[in-house]
C-alpha cells in the first residue's frame, strides 16, 4: 500500500507536472497535438495515486510485489516509449535537414552560374 504522505507528495508532483505542461502549451514551446499525450500521461499518473486497491490486484495478477514497483515500472516503460519516439523524430528531422542543406547548396550554385 502507498502511505497517505506519499499519496500527497505524488499528487503535488503531478499538479506541478500539469502546470509545466500548461505553461509550455501557452508559450507555444510544445505543439498542442503532442501535448495531448503528455496530458493523458499526467491524468493516468494522478488517477493511479488514488486507486491503489485496484493497482494491488493488478500487481498480484502480473506478479509484482508492491504497487510502488508497478508505478516505477510503468513510468520506466512510458519513458522508454517516449524516448524511442523522440529518437525516431530526431532521425526524421535530421534527414529533412540534410535534404534541405543539399538543395540549398545546389540552388546557390544555380544562382551563382546564372
Amino acid at each position: 500500500m502507498i502511505s497517505v504522505n506519499l499519496k500527497i507528495f505524488l499528487a503535488i508532483i503531478t499538479v506541478i507536472y500539469f502546470i509545466i505542461i500548461l505553461i509550455a502549451i501557452k508559450k507555444q514551446t510544445m505543439p498542442v497535438k503532442s501535448s495531448v499525450l503528455w496530458i493523458v500521461f499526467g491524468v493516468i499518473m494522478f488517477i493511479s495515486i488514488f486507486i491503489t486497491p485496484l493497482l494491488s490486484k493488478l500487481c498480484d495478477f502480473i506478479g509484482i510485489e508492491k504497487v510502488s514497483n508497478l508505478l516505477l515500472f510503468c513510468g520506466f516503460m512510458a519513458l522508454l516509449i517516449l524516448s524511442f519516439d523522440l529518437y525516431k523524430l530526431n532521425y526524421q528531422l535530421k534527414k529533412k535537414i540534410v535534404a534541405l542543406g543539399q538543395e540549398l547548396a545546389l540552388l546557390k550554385d544555380e544562382v551563382k552560374n546564372k
Binding site: 540534410v98 542543406g101 543539399q102 540549398l104 547548396a105 545546389l106 546557390k108 550554385d109
Partner: peptide
Amino acid sequence: LTLPFNMGIGAAVQ
C-alpha cells in the same frame, strides 16, 4: 558546391 554544415560522406556524395 558548399554544404552549409558537415553532413557526412554519404550526403556529400549524394
